[in-house]
Nucleic acid binder design. Structure first.
Length: 563
RNA sequence: GGCCCCAUCGUCUAGCCUGGUUAGGACACCAGGUUCUCAACCUGGUAACGCGGGUUCAAAUCCCGCUGGGGUCACCA
């Protein structure tokens, strides 16, 4: 036991979806454990009874699994045919609400040793004192009034069942944290007061629970966001009081929006409010949201809508909400490998060159799991750049082979774009893949590439400029070529991309014109616009019947157009 | 405001520890090439050491101050 196995943990509180920043923390913790051949543990911090929910827990577990972040110790999850989690080290349960006895044991020990004491002030009383302190421009600290009460009386009031909290006696000494990333950080004793370790409702506070759990679960390394840096001395003091080993700490920088603001769920509401106002909706434009709630939401900056309602509203307004939670990125058609790659690179750098001399930036989870190190981490905060993420995602999509692309796309459509999944089977998507892969940055925008296939043959909307340029300009030369090609196509049955391309090419040669002279008229005829995937693929997607029908329809349209 | 953390192109970063580089890469942007359109792809380009002091022959690199950004000051975690 001199050199224990490395154990890291991620401990989300189930009060909503998994935030992208939380996902990054989890990813790096996971990578650190893997790199050390250790274990990654997941614990659910549900000691805030009012805000925690089972559905949040479920969502967080699935988002992690989707990203490929799996845990050896923690809640069980069936995902994609595999079982994640378990309690092989028998240090569970992994829900804090189920560990109350363990916390009370620790709290009682502290009380018995006079390292903690009950306090009877009400939240209102404390709030008043806090306000006074702020008004007097002095930092608020608990005044230890409850310590003045004699032990005898404390015991009596306790026995009488008087509501109380338990406070920990913070030692009067500086505490230095040896942070693996930031170095030594020393905090003086006047920065702390006797913080609460058990709330009125009998639940432990975060500080107590996290200290007890990390110790009892054998956590050796704690990697967490820098917002926790100031908490660490409290945990260190608690560890000392309880006789626990101190884990190794590293506090990593936080991530922000490009404008420097915090990435918050509220950003989604903000975007939707702005769009609603611009669209001039005085009353609720969607079902499932009544007018009163809608106008209140619009008026009140802090009011937030339920996730589903917000999504419905965004769809109605035709806007894309800023992605904040992992779930948002998933819905928007990001690939997990692109997201984790980007996330890892946001603050960590492998400091390795590719063969061509450029820096290594594209790597997978296996690479991360074998090469991650705290030394490669930056100390500065960074901004989340969706543009670069999109580029990574486009690269990841392009790197998929056709079958894999089709599988991912179909799967995505089944969840988030039913009409697409109904129109095209997974097998269809395999043949669509070459046309779509290099033209979409997310699975969601793959749809726009093949939008022409969604339209009925007789409902094509023609782009006037494109029609003029390709068909009418130059005394109908394009139109004549199109008609002529249509005649040849009538007897042509081999509708594969390659054959069609050969056919068009041969036709162009026979007419002694460049490929473009026939390709563009054809393209406009079958799609209505001057932009589409390569002709062979475009026509193959439509099939012979639709192609002929569309050419006929276009010829008719062009004839009426020029009268 | 107190305390704590941080600071290289627009953004993410390499270089800093162990002073000497034309300060490198990626995304974005611009130009060109390729091409049946678009995309993809290829080539090239614009672009940074926050400011002020010190130490030194020499500072992005070491030290100090300032400025700026962030975190935190809950019976939330």
């Amino acid at each position: 036991m001199t050199n224990p196995q490395t154990i890291t943990r991620f401990a989300p509180s189930p009060t909503g979806h998994l935030h992208i920043g939380g996902a990054r923390t989890a990813l790096l913790c996971w990578a650190f454990a893997k790199q050390a051949d250790g274990r990654f543990l997941l614990r659910i911090e549900d000691t805030d009874q009012k805000r925690s929910s089972d559905s949040s827990t479920r969502g967080i577990l699935e988002d992690l699994a989707w990203l490929g972040i799996t845990w050896e110790d923690g809640p069980d999850l069936e995902f994609d045919g595999q079982t994640i989690g378990g309690d092989s080290r028998e240090v569970g349960p992994y829900y804090q609400a189920q560990r109350i006895d363990l916390y009370n044991e620790a709290i009682n020990t502290l009380i018995d040793q006079d390292k903690a004491y009950p306090a009877f002030e009400t939240p209102e009383e404390l709030e008043a004192k806090r306000k006074d302190a702020i008004a007097a421009k002095i930092g608020y600290k608990y005044d230890r009034a409850a310590l003045e009460i004699s032990k005898e009386e404390r015991t009596k009031r306790l026995a009488a069942g008087e509501p109380h909290v338990v406070r920990f006696i913070m030692p009067d000494e500086s505490i230095t944290v040896e942070d693996q990333l930031l170095g030594e950080v020393t905090i003086k004793p006047e920065e702390f007061d006797d913080f609460i370790i058990r709330k009125r409702d009998g639940f432990p506070t975060y500080h107590l629970a996290v200290t007890v759990d990390d110790a009892l679960m054998g956590v050796t390394h704690v990697l967490r966001g820098q917002e926790h840096l100031i908490n660490t001395p409290r945990h260190v003091a608690l560890q000392a009081a309880l006789g626990y080993d101190q884990p190794v700490y590293a506090h990593m920088p936080l991530i922000f929006n490009p404008d420097g603001s915090k990435m918050s769920k509220r950003d989604k509401d903000k975007a939707a409010k702005k769009a609603s106002k611009e669209a001039g909706h005085e009353s609720s434009p969607i079902e499932g949201l009544d007018d009163a709630a809608y106008t209140e939401w619009l008026k009140n900056k802090t009011r937030q809508l339920e996730s589903d309602t917000l999504i419905a509203l965004a769809k109605h307004l035709d806007i894309i909400l800023p992605e904040i939670d992992v779930e948002d990125f998933r819905r928007a058609g990001y690939l997990p490998e692109a997201l984790t790659n980007y996330l890892a690179l946001l603050g960590w750098n492998p400091k390795t060159k590719n063969d061509d001399g450029t820096d290594l930036e594209h790597f997978d989870m296996d690479y991360l799991a074998s090469h991650f190190s705290i030394a490669g981490m930056g100390k500065g905060q960074s901004k989340f750049d969706r543009v670069k993420l999109i580029s990574f995602n486009g690269d990841a999509i392009a790197a998929l082979d056709d079958a894999e692309f089709a599988s991912r796309w179909y799967n995505w459509a089944s969840n988030y774009d039913q009409p697409l999944a109904e129109r095209f089977s997974e097998a269809d998507m395999v043949s669509l893949a070459p046309a779509v892969k290099t033209r979409c940055k997310t699975l969601a925008d793959g749809r726009s590439v093949i939008a022409f296939a969604f339209i009925a043959d007789d409902a094509i909307v023609y782009d006037g400029k494109a029609v003029h340029k390709a068909l009418i300009k130059g005394e109908n030369k394009g139109l004549e070529l199109l008609k002529s090609f249509r005649d040849e196509l009538a007897d042509f049955n081999d509708f594969t991309p390659e054959s069609i391309e050969a056919k068009v090419s041969a036709f162009a040669e026979s007419k002694e014109v460049g490929m473009g002279k026939i390709a563009q008229p054809l393209r406009v005829a079958v799609t209505g616009a001057g932009v589409s995937p390569p002709l062979g693929q475009t026509l193959a997607i439509l099939g012979k019947e639709a192609t002929l029908a569309r050419i006929d329809g276009c010829v008719e349209h062009a004839m009426t157009e020029q009268v």
